[in-house]
Design a protein around this nucleic acid. Sequence first.
DNA 1: GATGAATGAGTTTTCATTCAT
DNA 2: TATGAATGAAAACTCATTCAT
Lengths: 203, 203, 203, 203
Amino acid sequence: MVPIPVRCERESAGLRRQQVLDAAADCFRRHGFHSAGMAQIAREAGMSVGHIYHYFDNKEAIIAAIVDRDLARIIEILEGFRNAEDILKAMIRQISIDIDAHTDARDSALQLEILAESSRNPEVAKLARAKDEVGRRLLCDTIANGRLQRGLPPLQAPELAARVDVMIALFEGLNCRGVSHPQLNRDQVSAVLGKVVRQLLED
Amino acid sequence: MVPIPVRCERESAGLRRQQVLDAAADCFRRHGFHSAGMAQIAREAGMSVGHIYHYFDNKEAIIAAIVDRDLARIIEILEGFRNAEDILKAMIRQISIDIDAHTDARDSALQLEILAESSRNPEVAKLARAKDEVGRRLLCDTIANGRLQRGLPPLQAPELAARVDVMIALFEGLNCRGVSHPQLNRDQVSAVLGKVVRQLLED
Amino acid sequence: MVPIPVRCERESAGLRRQQVLDAAADCFRRHGFHSAGMAQIAREAGMSVGHIYHYFDNKEAIIAAIVDRDLARIIEILEGFRNAEDILKAMIRQISIDIDAHTDARDSALQLEILAESSRNPEVAKLARAKDEVGRRLLCDTIANGRLQRGLPPLQAPELAARVDVMIALFEGLNCRGVSHPQLNRDQVSAVLGKVVRQLLED
Amino acid sequence: MVPIPVRCERESAGLRRQQVLDAAADCFRRHGFHSAGMAQIAREAGMSVGHIYHYFDNKEAIIAAIVDRDLARIIEILEGFRNAEDILKAMIRQISIDIDAHTDARDSALQLEILAESSRNPEVAKLARAKDEVGRRLLCDTIANGRLQRGLPPLQAPELAARVDVMIALFEGLNCRGVSHPQLNRDQVSAVLGKVVRQLLED
DNA sequence: GATGAATGAGTTTTCATTCAT
DNA sequence: TATGAATGAAAACTCATTCAT
């Protein structure tokens, strides 16, 4: 009835949800989606097992929310390029940051977990694909704008889309590398990757 | 008098093992490592649950054997290049085949499953990393030979290793693409990928 | 100045209680006592879960209140016969109404639910048996009066009690029939039942 | 491979199933379908929880099997009348046995439990109704034969069916009586019931 | 009077693994 | 070599009830 408490309740609910997501992401990272028990997630989220079900319909819904949250972060990064002086340059500069994130074994594990789950859970797959599509579209736009800004010849839609798929594959592939070859030489790989990405963006 | 039956038994044992591996690979593909039950694997392998334990110590050992078998296939492909007239050309030609294999949702699923599992199961991780190392080393050698054959300047070991990591990332990334973006334009992507790989091999 | 709001509150309290009973009866009917959740009852009663506990000590108390309410309705019907010109005739006439009520699958379900619950929940059993006793006593009295009115010879108490038990069994049995044989021919059964009841009342 | 062991295994499997059914029936009787836990059933059946699932797909399947087994017993009783010298007389004689079975609180509880469950579980309902139909049909035939034997005029099908429904209602109603009025006077009720049934069979 | 967040024991069901035959 | 009955711990999820506000 009073606006402030109501807002507080909403905020508190949002916070509790975030607590669950944080705890779950961490558990999934360390134990995988199937081996992470609700009991453990609850413990780390500082709440009872049953109460998690006030915020999420089921375990699947938790991973779905994590996918959504990831998408939000990606959108944020890509939108950040919009006002850059030289978009392509800004993107290339971002690579060295991304390479660390994508070869960190812990983050990689979560991404692989989601991917593996979505390869057989249709509900998760739907969300993961939707996220992927938004990401691809935004990346296409960003690159097109970057080339326009530089005066580079515009690329045809399918050509641009293919380049974007290859770029994303490159970074998703790094996730896999982080698991199978955790000792890879980050600097050296970063340099090679930089050249490849520059070719994909500027050619 | 005995050698023949013995050989038969050995052969039959090997065959039975393969039956299990085939059945397991298929089950893992479709349901994931954790959701694929031993009962189902046994049924599809045409043998009893308990008997699988004559061939494999436990479920983990099955996935380990699948990893080993994959490695054997990779070695076979890479060794096949050894006698090619133009090694680099042969490798580039192989890409169009690989791209289909790596974007097929079913094969991808199994690879992701193994990767996800190895990101939390140390036993599987050890094997997956060993396989990865053999693959990388062989790929390095093959590329070095190919460049020698073409008279291209030799690459320094770390530079070559980084290029190999990026190449593998590219193909592992395609596995991920196959799950998140199954409708990707294979021809267009193949063309872009071809250019990138050529750059990595020949520059 | 205060009496009116107070009365309003009391009335409102009674109304709220009825809302809960109505909602609960419906939920029990559709899902059974154990599968009907307090959350669902609260939703259908238009109030919060916690608030139900202002009116009822626990879930058991709700079913108890439903039993009480049923008894009230039975008493009302039986008392209605008191001033009839021909009590036995009035009772027989009532049968055709009762037969519909007792073979309606929805009503039957609730009665069976209560019976099943009282066969293992001593608290509910106590109430159900008390209700049963009041009903039986009243039915005995009504029949005795009816026979007196008609000049039929009075029945001995145990004989009358047995007839009443058989009559009630007949109607409770119809509840069961409604579940196991929902397509039963109501008209035909009504006719047969009429004859049996007449025999029980008038012989 | 050898017939005898196979038969033994089958027999043993059947025995184990029966153990589960016996234990479950008893648990359901005492605690109701929903309150009887699989753990308790397993304990009383002398086997592990998980092993019950080798014999029954789920808890529902257990109650279904109990319904089937009840039907078998009913068929046995009714078929027993076939060769009686005076079928109707034999049936009436059976009443005094039935009355005890149908007013025993423990047996009643199980029947009510099944009825309650089938009023909301379609799978159980289907079975219960199928059982009911077989029972009714057999009862109709038995009565028709009995009347033929006695030289009584044959009844029209709908009239006979209605009488059968009323008879069954009478006994199912006794189940309910056993719960709501466990102290009922069995002898007196038996006498009244006898008259009513005689009327239904012989008129 | 009224809310709904919070609890945690309880439920059914699954599954890798063992072992007597 | 081959079977499949048997185990029991662990999983996800539910729900009556409480209590601070």
